[in-house]
Design a binder for these strands. Sequence first.
DNA 1: ATAAAAATTCCACTATATGAAAATTTTTAT
DNA 2: ATAAAAATTTTCATATAGTGGAATTTTTAT
Lengths: 300, 300
Amino acid sequence: MITYGKTLREIRKQKGVTLKELADGICSVSFLSKFETDASDITLGLFTRILDKLMLTMDEFLFIHNDFQPSQLEQFFKKVKGAYFSRNATLLKELKEEELRKWKQYGVETYHCNALMIQVSERIVSKKIIDEDVQAHDIKVLTDYLFQVEVWGYYELMLYNGTILLLQPEMAILLSRTAYEKSARYQEFDKVKVAISSVLFNTIIFLLGPVNRFEEPLTYEKEIAEFLSYLEQVSISERNLLERIQLMELKGAYELRSGNKRDGIAKIEEAVLILNKLKAHQLAKNMESYLQQIIDFSKG
Amino acid sequence: MITYGKTLREIRKQKGVTLKELADGICSVSFLSKFETDASDITLGLFTRILDKLMLTMDEFLFIHNDFQPSQLEQFFKKVKGAYFSRNATLLKELKEEELRKWKQYGVETYHCNALMIQVSERIVSKKIIDEDVQAHDIKVLTDYLFQVEVWGYYELMLYNGTILLLQPEMAILLSRTAYEKSARYQEFDKVKVAISSVLFNTIIFLLGPVNRFEEPLTYEKEIAEFLSYLEQVSISERNLLERIQLMELKGAYELRSGNKRDGIAKIEEAVLILNKLKAHQLAKNMESYLQQIIDFSKG
DNA sequence: ATAAAAATTCCACTATATGAAAATTTTTAT
DNA sequence: ATAAAAATTTTCATATAGTGGAATTTTTAT
């Protein structure tokens, strides 16, 4: 049952607009009344015009309708992330099975991808050892989907972000490049921009970090430089200070790995200092422990 | 003419989903085909289910549909702001008249408020001297609207932000308090959160600043402290670094005004230093010139 | 080139979105 | 308290959203 009408009525009342005023030039008063009492659904075209008149964006309306909670999609990724960080294998399994159910019902590939992305987290959390071939096959489904999509939106970026750690470095480089190129048109859309820079950030960390098992510290020097330059272009707005600090951190890590130990450590320590000055202590702590990891690694 | 269908088709193709798969469980294939060829409009209820299946939020869909531009509402405020900062009185007048036209046509009060908000900027830009009574009447329309609305969303916050400078300090205090209280439910909605903190920020600047003509520097000490505490609560996430730096600036300005000159200046200079370190030179410059203003004012 | 899959068009049909006017309820004014 | 005005709901007629299926065309795969 649809209940958008009830939400619209509440908002209209709050703004002190009458049915007649709101309907005028868009639809009849009687119909608007019916819609508001949930006795009828409304056409997308009419509804957007009504929202315009109330000075309301669709996302704000849906947010209110959704009891002041973000969209289902955002909540989905939040739930997966939450379950992963709290090491809740049971919840991850449930989430996965829900997606598998949808996949079987509708045959839409995105549900399959969702399930596989969750499975990745699930295996890490439950430390399951998996047959290489099975793993490779699952990854192929994901990467096939991602390569095929022509414009990457919020969903594709978040999906990729959740699986990047499992890929071979070469594949990650290829896909991250694709991500950057295929999401270029979202410059004006904050949520997607954050997702893009998160992808780039994770890519660089992945190529630098001890997470990756490459023998020599600087196998992907050229690629890291490439992604750093992308990151600089994405977070170009002066208002994105967090991204600027993270960039500073990455540059430090990069220098450190390139052998310029003194400057690299100085840069990261400066970033940590700034975060502490801004009382962002948790972020500062994370950054410090990352620095420690690199130092330990470069010693060993 | 409605063209949402065409946009949906493009997206569906890009994601490699067939009509049948997408329609399954939601609507008939033949109808979806009709909608996608813009031969028919679709119901809001059906459409949201279709977007869910494509892992797409409504705002992302509308963003794509709108040729990768933000919503009309955001563009409206952006346009007004742009015209104001480029001192374009002609454009401001045009924008105002468009809103007046809509107001006369539909009688919806929000259009009237828009026109008045633009008029405020227009008068400042063209340095028009206005009869006190006229000004007072215009302001009353705006404040009446704002007091009456029970939940402040993006629109109300932006509207208020654009007019705050014209109010009497007592009125601004009352309305800013209202703004903070009546937008409390938007904690999970970034765009609105940014607008709230912008309101609080402007309120404090207004109560502190030389813009205001009060005789003694600290008439509103208690209120400034109140709004500072609100601001701390709003920008509680460690990720909102820009807001944290601005808070630092405000605290410095507040101390400066309270007579603690040395600590106040030190705080603002530290904020400027951090911005410069993050290469946010424009922001740093603005902050520095604000500091200079206060210093000049406290000398005189 | 050929077969298979996907999409469109057409049909007849049902459910429901939408409009106009009348009836009812709520608000406002005195 | 009562009448008048405004706002909303109801009723009913009509247009159109939406279904299901079959035939046709277009795209894709081999």
